[in-house]
Structure formats: C-alpha cells, structure tokens
C-alpha cells in the first residue's frame, strides 16, 4: 500500500517562502490563492521570546472531514491518500472550507484578479488560466502535486526518492526542510524521520490523521 506523506523539519525551515512561490508557479495560482503558507508566531516576552515558523499546506488527512462533508462527491481521497477536488463536480457550497479545521481550503471566485492591478493579465497569467484546471466558483487546495507524482510513476520513478516525481515545494526548499515519501513503508525516508525524531501532526485531537508531519 502507498500513502503519500510529508515531513517538515522545523529546525531547518528558515521561513524563506520558497515553497510558497514554487507552489504558485507550479499551479499558476492566481493572486490571493495560496496552497502553501508560512505561519509565524511568537510566544513569551522579551528577552525570553520563542519564534515559531510553520510551513502549512493541506494535510491530505487519512480521515478527511472535507471528503465526508462534501455533498457533491467532488472531494475524494485517492488510494494513495491524496485528497483531491474535482472542479467539474464542485458546486461551490463551501462546506469543506468551513469543515477543514486547518483552514487549508480556499474558495476561488475571482478569475479576473490580476497580479498587477489595472494592467490586465500578463502573458504568463493568460497561459496559466488556460493550463490551470482551476474553475471560478469552486474550492481549491493543495494536491501534493499529484500530476507530478502520477507522471513520475508512469516514467518508473519513485516519489520521495526521484526529484522529478516530488511535489514542487519539496524540490524547491533551499534548506531541504521538506521530505516526501510513503508513510505506509516503514523503511521510507519519511517513516524513518517520524520514528527517529518523534514526528508530530497539527491538532491530532480532531481525529483527521494528517499525512503532514513536523519534526523539531
């Protein structure tokens, strides 16, 4: 069995936003749509201050509440654990947006929005609109770059090992803070990292079993 997952090393992450930009480029994401985000918080008071930098993305939950609540059957979980949205089926009710406790789903409704307001869509944006499967009036979210994974597997590559079959955010992390692999394989890079460095998930109390782990 395969269940794709990601491990993010918080010690290595420097909050440079490379993952966010790589994701935007890979999927031609319009303005205000982020499938990867960096959440930064501070705790304590000077001089005892602690800074937290958490890269966050869709957790591709094993018990995905977004899939359960979707009335249209547009949100589904693939056999390899990736939670995807079929934009052709989504009616845009936003129940999944509300139900996701990690707030990783976004309602995309303005396809006219430009990166350079008032100057029209750039050539790249126009190409992006044609190539991107996003549909206005539907819900969008990170898909672990499923198209890269599928294409890589078709070519005989191994996601998590071969760079070409990895998600864009993993490939573009300059500090190699992101690791991708099969959570069901006990000998995969991600399973070893989770085991050895006590990987943890965000809010496990929601019972969604996220496939994104963090190590500190």
């Amino acid at each position: 069995m395969v269940r794709w997952g990601m491990v993010i090393d918080l010690k290595k992450c420097i909050g440079c936003y490379s993952c966010l930009i790589a994701c935007k480029q890979e999927h031609f994401l319009p303005p205000d749509i982020f499938w990867n985000r960096i959440v930064i918080s501070e705790t304590g008071q000077y001089p005892n201050v602690k800074n937290y930098v958490y890269p966050v993305l869709c957790n591709q939950c094993n018990e995905a509440i977004c899939v359960k609540v979707c009335p249209c059957g547009a949100s589904t979980k693939r056999e390899d654990g990736i939670v995807k949205v079929d934009y052709e089926k989504c009616a845009g009710c936003q129940y999944c947006v509300i139900a996701c406790p990690y707030q990783q789903r976004i309602f995309y409704d303005d396809d006219k929005k430009e990166y350079f307001p008032g100057q029209g869509l750039t050539e790249l944006e126009l190409i992006g609109r044609e190539l991107s499967p996003l549909r206005p009036g539907t819900v969008v979210k990170c898909n672990f770059c499923e198209e890269k994974i599928d294409e890589g597997i078709r070519k005989g590559l191994k996601p998590g090992v071969d760079r070409e079959a990895n998600p864009a955010c993993v490939n573009n992390c300059p500090t190699k803070a992101r690791h991708f692999g099969n959570l069901d394989d006990t000998n995969s890079n991600v399973s070893i990292l989770i085991r050895q460095r006590k990987g943890f998930q965000l809010h496990p109390e929601f019972g969604t079993e996220p496939s994104v782990y963090y190590i500190d």
Partner: peptide, 25 residues
C-alpha cells in the same frame, strides 16, 4: 438563498449525491 450562495449554481443538483456522510445532502 442556498442556490444564490453556490459558486456554481448550475451544479446544484450535485448536492444530492452524498447522503451517506454529508448533512448538506
């Protein structure tokens, strides 16, 4: 009101497709 709220109103009929787990259906 529900119809007007949908992002894709023409697909409203799809709301009936997941009675197994979705309270909206």
């Amino acid at each position: 009101f529900h119809f007007a709220h949908l992002g894709q109103p023409s697909k409203f009929w799809r709301l009936a497709l997941n009675a197994k787990t979705s309270w909206l259906t």
